[in-house]
Each structure stands twice: as structure tokens, then as C-alpha cells.
């Protein structure tokens, strides 16, 4: 996987290893509104960087989380989805994924399975959330259950890029998920924390060491 970065000379993906940098990718069929959602979240402040050679658009976004500056790169597909799959570099080093479908077109919902399978091939562990877009076209869908997310154990949101419903919420959520994935405070670290808590006094010294490491990690990220 590391070799893939060589294929994109304009794109230095090593920067995503830095604590304050996160990469969030968007996945979904053509015309489900991925770019429209991006633009609604960023409003006038967005500076998209078109990389037409790679059929992708980058949106840079800076925010503050717990007093720390975080630089977010959102990756959007710019038509690459029409090749039925994405270039491996699209997934490379991604910290979170937003999967989008259009509530007006069943095909885009059915295709989530394919997108999700591909995502998991490259990024088995990153947090992923599912959004049902264009609910402004038919509010009745919000009374319905879409099983895909539940089946995969993914958070699910009803959104509308047009009227703005839950768009900002979803993006903020994605940023938080990306950061916590990066800090590895997800499953693996939760286990470590649990273990530390259950340590008894005679192991105090040992656990203290671990704890120090961890606190440091959380603070710098």
C-alpha cells in the first residue's frame, strides 16, 4: 500500500501521519450529492482543489477540536466512481469514510454494499457512517428504516444538502470519528483502558507507565 503514494506525485499522503492531519473520504454512486454535501458544509469557505488527472477533488478544512487545530482533507470522487471502483490511493491512509446514497434512487442504496466491500478491502477498521441524502424530496422516508447501516453496525443519518438538514452534524461527527480512530482510542485502546482499570495495586508501577504513554498520545492528537 505504501507504494501507491508514488502514483500521485502531487499528493503527499505522508502528511496524514501527522497528528493534526486527517483524511476523510466520500463514497457513493454518481449524482447522490457528495459534492453538494461538501459544499453545504464548507459554505463559502471552501477551496476545492481539482485533480482531474485522478478524477478527484480535495477540500481543505481547518477546525479546532478540544483546543487543538485540526487540518482536514476531504476527498471527493469527481466522477471516479463511474469506473465502478476507486483507485487504491483514494483509500490510502483515510481515517474515516462518509458513504452517501440518494433516497430517490434505489440503485444507489443497493450499490452501498459494493462500496462498503471495497472500503473494507483497503481500510478494514476505519469508522464509516452512512447518510441518506435528498430527504427534502420526500420527507416520508424519514419514517423508514434502511437496514444496510444497521446490519453493518454503522451510524446512519437522514440529510439534505439542499435545505441543510443534519449536514454539519454529519461532517463534525466524521471529523471526531476520524480523530478518535487516529488516536487509536477505539476498540484496541478501550481494551487497554479496561485492563488498566482492573489492574491491582501490585501492578501499579506497570500500569502507571502505560497510562503516561497514553495520556501523552491523547494530548498531542
Amino acid at each position: 500500500m505504501a507504494g501507491e503514494t508514488n502514483n500521485l506525485p502531487e499528493l503527499d499522503q505522508d502528511k496524514y501521519d501527522a497528528d493534526e492531519q486527517v483524511k476523510i473520504i466520500c463514497l457513493g454512486d454518481s449524482a447522490v450529492g457528495k459534492s453538494k454535501l461538501m459544499e453545504r458544509f464548507l459554505m463559502d469557505g471552501y477551496r476545492p482543489q481539482q485533480l482531474s488527472t485522478y478524477a478527484l477533488t480535495l477540500y481543505k478544512y481547518t477546525t479546532t477540536v478540544n483546543g487543538k487545530t485540526v487540518l482536514v482533507d476531504f476527498w471527493d470522487t469527481a466522477g471516479q466512481e463511474r469506473f465502478q471502483s476507486m483507485h487504491p490511493s483514494y483509500y490510502h491512509k483515510a481515517h474515516a469514510c462518509i458513504m452517501v446514497f440518494d433516497i430517490q434512487r434505489k440503485m444507489t442504496y443497493k450499490n452501498l454494499t459494493n462500496w462498503y466491500t471495497e472500503l473494507r478491502e483497503y481500510r478494514p477498521e476505519i469508522p464509516c457512517l452512512v447518510v441518506a441524502n435528498k430527504i427534502d424530496a420526500d420527507m416520508k422516508v424519514t419514517q423508514k428504516n434502511f437496514n444496510f447501516a444497521k446490519k453493518q453496525g454503522l451510524p446512519f443519518y437522514f440529510v439534505s444538502a439542499a435545505d441543510g438538514t443534519n449536514v454539519v452534524k454529519v461532517f463534525r461527527e466524521a471529523i471526531h470519528m476520524a480523530l478518535s480512530y487516529k488516536q487509536n482510542s477505539s476498540d484496541f485502546m478501550d481494551e487497554v483502558m479496561k485492563e488498566l482499570e482492573s489492574f491491582d495495586l501490585k501492578n501499579q508501577e506497570d500500569s502507571d507507565e502505560h497510562e503516561d504513554e497514553e495520556t501523552e498520545k491523547l494530548n498531542t492528537a
Partner: peptide, 22 residues
């Protein structure tokens, strides 16, 4: 009446009916 961070709550999952797409 524009709200940037427009949050709308929808019925809980278990209160929603199954979508025919599923």
C-alpha cells in the same frame, strides 16, 4: 431563516417501518 448547523431529530430506528428497498 437560514441555520448553518441545522439539526433535525427523526424517529428512533425501532419506531420506523421497514423500507421496501430492504
Amino acid at each position: 431563516d437560514f441555520v448553518y448547523d441545522l439539526e433535525v431529530e427523526f424517529p428512533e430506528e425501532d419506531k420506523r417501518e421497514t423500507c421496501s428497498w430492504d
